[in-house]
Write a protein that binds this DNA or RNA. Structure first.
Lengths: 141, 141
DNA sequence: GTAACTGCAAAATATTTGCATCCTT
DNA sequence: AAGGATGCAAATATTTTGCAGTTAC
């Protein structure tokens, strides 16, 4: 877990149990996590409030970002290196599988530039695509 | 308001005050609406619960759809004709102004096709872009 | 030692459900 | 008249806040 500690230090955060545990949950998970996922996780026995505050701290520092989902539940996922404190560059595509409900961060899929009407200035783009994921598609065959 | 009535009939809904009022709110509004926007609106003096149920009915029937936003608030907007019951085709861009908080449906901005990894099948795409809108940009100058 | 973090309690918000009454067809 | 919609009350769920005790540095 030394990586986790260094990682937190690099972001100017003090090292606490909840931050270590929750951060490593994210690094171990391929998909995004909801608050409930974290709370349910047996290895995380922290107060519900602490989880809220830890997640908010991570978002503020640019470690994780929130994902807009089709059903408007709140999901969090690790940011890429390009995210800076208070300024997210979260320009990858999120994919939600209608079948298994898993949310994927498709890091390798770049968002094509969207041409906005004159006068509109884009700061951040979120693309959420829903459908059937690789896994579920295979199963169906 | 005859249009409103015919519209509701076409979707197999009975004609009630709340449905007429809330539907015409949507047709009069250029942007998307949050539950709170509707509740706050003076012309809508319905119970909070009725608003929830009316919105849910509209979503179920394919009249409106929810918009996922970066801050995970729930927004609703009218669907295009291509939306069918239980099957939304909402492929225009939503723009949220960081300054005035207005949500725009940029109907004329088409979403460029996103190339997904093999095995992923897209059913619906939502693009939410945040930044500064035409109006606020002008003000700042 | 000091500032920051955590847990508990509780407040504030948001959403859902049950049921009696009223409205639409 | 019958089925569905509404309003009210209340149950749930979610998120935020205050504060005392604990921990990191």
């Amino acid at each position: 877990m030394e990586n986790t500690i260094d990682f937190l230090k690099n972001y100017g955060l003090s090292i606490t149990e909840s931050r270590k545990k929750i951060l490593s949950l994210f690094t171990q998970t391929k998909g995004a996590l909801a608050h409930a996922d974290i709370e349910r996780n047996a290895s995380v026995n922290f107060d519900r409030v602490t989880i809220y505050r830890t997640l908010q701290t991570f978002v503020d520092k640019g470690i994780i970002h929130t994902i807009p989902t089709a059903d408007n539940s709140v999901l969090y996922a690790l940011c890429k290196d390009t995210c800076k404190e208070g300024h997210h560059h979260d320009n990858h595509v999120h994919f939600i599988c209608d079948s298994c409900d898993t949310t994927y961060c498709l890091d390798n899929v770049t968002i094509p530039a969207v041409v906005l009407p004159e006068g509109f200035i884009a700061k951040q783009s979120d693309v959420v695509i829903s459908g059937i994921c690789k896994n579920c598609e295979v199963i169906k065959e």
